[in-house]
Lab assay of single mutants.
Amino acid sequence: MAAGGDHGSPDSYRSPLASRYASPEMCFVFSDRYKFRTWRQLWLWLAEAEQTLGLPITDEQIQEMKSNLENIDFKMAAEEEKRLRHDVMAHVHTFGHCCPKAAGIIHLGATSCYVGDNTDLIILRNALDLLLPKLARVISRLADFAKERASLPTLGFTHFQPAQLTTVGKRCCLWIQDLCMDLQNLKRVRDDLRFRGVKGTTGTQASFLQLFEGDDHKVEQLDKMVTEKAGFKRAFIITGQTYTRKVDIEVLSVLASLGASVHKICTDIRLLANLKEMEEPFEKQQIGSSAMPYKRNPMRSERCCSLARHLMTLVMDPLQTASVQWFERTLDDSANRRICLAEAFLTADTILNTLQNISEGLVVYPKVIERRIRQELPFMATENIIMAMVKAGGSRQDCHEKIRVLSQQAASVVKQEGGDNDLIERIQVDAYFSPIHSQLDHLLDPSSFTGRASQQVQRFLEEEVYPLLKPYESVMKVKAELCL
């Protein structure tokens, strides 16, 4: 049975990233139509530049190519590739079939990587351009969430054990800070992308030097003109047959890092959902379990974690691919890159769409948070109580021993009897502590235990987050809708 299948058929496997999760716009960027249309555009740009620099290419040939950029006979191309065992030459023939007058000058002087690699770089750039505003929107939604809850005390956790208090907004800023680093890295790697350009079979530009009869300047002009037509500021000066596969490492490393950030955020949300302090959106008709109707599973956060793990592992592909590119190139890269580049971007696209949807509907339960604080705060307040007693004339050592005994009794009630923490009640009825009984409410005010959390939130948002989001103001209103 021949390899390949009808990918629109229910009898043929289709990647869930495309069929179930990723956005239509990201799927289109990695589609065959987008790819092969870009090949034709690159052939047109090459012909236009070659004509401008004096090669015998007519206006009629150029116009014929322009008129057929979208006229792609995919069936013919597939048949040609089956016959020739070469995808680029299959599309040269297919393009030439609908451009008979231009057929002889299509791909003039070029090698397969002229269309293959340059198209990949265009796709990487455009895919990054799709991700950047999506990530900015996630940051914006979380920034709104953090600002609104900047002063809401909550129990902090280290080692997932109760620690000092923080605020809900401050905790959210930990998430935002990681995503801001990801946004900066995505922008950097996007701006650092260079075009492969017009380089020939081993990167020496020998074929173009021959076409222009040894004119170095025209060869350099050709490279520059096509690079500018493709919208790049610069091209690699040095290439082998391909652009260095280190570029793929750079791009997928940034995406993998984004995956790590999203995994951490969504894990926190899942843990908070278990504590009943916070939940992701839950639709009115949504079913959490087929057997347990009360369940409210954090399905979206779980999906993000599941896909983020996949995204983090994909960076190993370009690392290994770059390491086995012998001399000017081997074909070890080809099949692998067809999979890992598309999957990385479709996965990143999915987790950003999902995280935006989550961040637009996060639900906080202040009463649950308050109750958990009441359970733990008495123990945390013991040092403040000791200091207040010393100020009232008591002995630190005597007070410490009193607190120690009462704390152990209260802990026994919590752990052995399943009761509430009654340390404060014990202190309130103990005559030894009568000098500070009137101060206990103040000493137990949760806001006095959150330090500068709310001020940190305000400063972080104003100095770091809002300036970073400013270039994306025009796209901030787009909502994230999930079908599944």
Results as ranks from 00 to 15, higher is better:
6 D>V: 10
31 S>G: 05
36 F>E: 15
36 F>I: 15
40 R>S: 02
41 Q>W: 13
42 L>G: 00
43 W>L: 10
46 L>A: 01
54 G>H: 10
55 L>S: 05
59 D>P: 07
67 S>M: 10
69 L>K: 04
72 I>E: 05
76 M>V: 11
79 E>F: 15
81 E>D: 15
82 K>Q: 07
86 H>Q: 10
88 V>L: 08
105 I>V: 10
107 H>T: 03
108 L>G: 04
111 T>G: 04
111 T>W: 00
114 Y>G: 05
117 D>V: 01
118 N>L: 02
125 R>K: 15
131 L>S: 14
145 F>W: 10
146 A>V: 05
148 E>P: 03
153 P>I: 15
153 P>Q: 03
154 T>P: 01
160 F>L: 08
161 Q>G: 03
162 P>W: 03
162 P>S: 08
164 Q>T: 01
168 V>W: 03
171 R>N: 01
172 C>H: 09
174 L>S: 12
177 Q>S: 13
177 Q>N: 14
180 C>I: 14
184 Q>A: 12
187 K>C: 08
187 K>E: 13
188 R>Y: 09
190 R>S: 13
196 R>H: 15
199 K>H: 00
199 K>C: 10
203 G>K: 02
204 T>I: 03
208 F>Q: 05
209 L>D: 11
210 Q>F: 02
212 F>L: 12
219 V>L: 10
220 E>R: 10
221 Q>H: 14
224 K>L: 13
230 A>F: 00
242 T>P: 11
243 Y>I: 02
253 S>V: 10
254 V>D: 07
256 A>Q: 03
260 A>Q: 07
262 V>N: 08
263 H>R: 04
267 T>S: 10
268 D>W: 03
273 A>K: 00
274 N>D: 15
276 K>F: 11
276 K>Q: 03
278 M>A: 04
278 M>H: 00
280 E>G: 03
290 S>V: 01
290 S>D: 01
292 M>D: 02
299 M>C: 09
306 S>E: 01
309 R>L: 05
314 L>Y: 14
314 L>P: 14
317 D>P: 08
317 D>I: 07
318 P>V: 13
318 P>S: 07
319 L>N: 00
323 S>M: 14
327 F>E: 05
327 F>W: 02
332 D>A: 01
335 A>F: 12
336 N>L: 13
340 C>P: 00
342 A>W: 09
343 E>K: 14
343 E>F: 00
343 E>A: 03
344 A>I: 01
345 F>Q: 03
346 L>S: 15
346 L>I: 15
352 L>R: 02
355 L>F: 14
366 P>A: 06
369 I>S: 10
370 E>G: 09
373 I>K: 07
374 R>C: 04
380 M>E: 10
383 E>F: 02
384 N>G: 05
384 N>E: 11
387 M>N: 08
387 M>V: 06
392 A>F: 04
393 G>D: 10
394 G>S: 14
395 S>L: 07
402 K>Y: 08
409 Q>E: 11
409 Q>L: 11
410 A>T: 03
419 G>L: 13
419 G>S: 10
422 D>H: 02
423 L>T: 03
432 Y>F: 14
436 I>Y: 09
440 L>R: 01
442 H>E: 09
442 H>P: 06
448 S>D: 14
454 S>C: 06
457 V>K: 02
468 L>A: 15
469 L>S: 14
469 L>F: 12
473 E>V: 14
474 S>R: 13
479 K>P: 15
482 L>F: 14
483 C>P: 15
484 L>A: 13
